[in-house]
């Protein structure tokens, strides 16, 4: 496919889009940080904590995105996704397994019959610096191999220089290449500099057809933070109020402890509302988080502190 056919916006549309994004109300940064910090102090204990832990486990996109990934490592990860704690069958399955596009077929075969979807990063993750043809080919390969979800990265360079039309066109082109697969759009908020930009990028991605908006690749610091997620949750809430279409949110990177995960759940409930509090509309991109959730789960069940020796290494 040539870039010409992928381009769906005319000059006029691009100008309208830019004007729309500029017209979005600014984010009160101090207010957002204050609100996120206040919600983070909510105390979630005993039975509520047990429920939150199980919900968080069911929301995890278990991720391995290393250059050193092997089919064996992906298979081990898939086994863990299907049964996170081998000694306890009451632990829910995770939502999805997230891998690079060339390992999708390994993951799909390992997860057959479990009902767990395979998510694949695509579009020359994590930088997003490649020609559009290459990004589309990457996406189609992942979909053809059986990926149910595609995590794409936006072209931050284009976004920051104000070329929002280009970003929009790329997202719509990738969305088309996805076919029936769900599209998650990674904003890489750590490179967007301001919360105003996070809000604009969120709206841009949603208008271009994203099914999910995701904070980060996990390769850039800072990755997911509470204020950034707050702004994105407000965006999906406002977008649904305006258009009737619901879009999911996925913070990823830097979420390592149960305490962190529960803070995100509180934030979802208080910002977007309980409609988003399911694995269908909210995900946690993580790898080491799962072991901490399992450790806390066992602490609640047995009454004694557990240790990393009793859970699988990833």
């Amino acid at each position: 496919m040539s870039t010409e056919t992928a381009s769906t916006t005319t000059l006029n549309d691009a100008a309208e889009l830019r004007a729309f994004l500029r017209g979005l109300p600014g984010v009160d940064q101090v207010g957002a940080e204050e609100r996120a910090a206040r919600l983070a102090t909510r105390s979630i204990k005993t039975t509520a904590k047990a429920e939150a832990i199980d919900l968080a486990i069911a929301m995890v996109d278990l991720t391995t995105l290393e250059g050193a990934d092997t089919p064996g490592k992906v298979r081990a990860l898939c086994a863990k996704a299907a049964r996170p704690d081998p000694s306890d069958g009451s632990v829910p399955r995770v939502a999805a397994v997230c891998v690079y596009s060339d390992l999708v077929d390994v993951a799909v075969r390992s997860l057959e019959g479990t009902g767990i979807g395979v998510a694949s990063v695509a579009t020359s993750f994590p930088s997003g610096r490649a020609p559009l043809e290459a990004k589309l080919a990457d996406t189609r390969a992942a979909v053809a191999a059986g990926a149910a979800e595609i995590d794409m990265v936006i072209d931050r360079g284009a976004f920051l220089t104000g070329d929002v039309g280009k970003v929009f066109d790329e997202i719509t082109a990738v969305k088309e290449a996805c076919g029936r697969a769900h599209l998650k759009v990674i904003l890489e908020t750590g490179e967007l500099a301001t919360l105003d930009n996070v809000r604009r990028a969120s709206w841009l991605a949603m208008r271009a057809g994203a099914d999910f908006i995701k904070t980060s690749t996990g390769k850039v610091s800072p990755a997911a933070t509470l204020p950034v997620t707050l702004v994105m949750l407000e965006a999906v809430r406002d977008y649904r109020a305006r258009t009737g279409r619901q879009v999911g949110v996925k913070p990823a990177g830097g979420i390592r402890t149960t305490k962190d995960a529960i803070r995100y759940l509180v934030l979802v409930n208080e910002t977007a509302g309980p409609d988003w509090l399911t694995p269908e509309w909210f995900r946690l991109g993580a790898s080491s988080l799962l072991n901490d959730l399992l450790m806390q789960r066992r602490k609640l069940a047995t009454g004694v502190y557990s240790g990393p020796d009793y859970f699988t290494l990833d």
Partner: peptide, 9 residues
Amino acid sequence: PWLASHMDV
């Protein structure tokens, strides 16, 4: 007691 029962000690 918490240290005595801690599985990582």
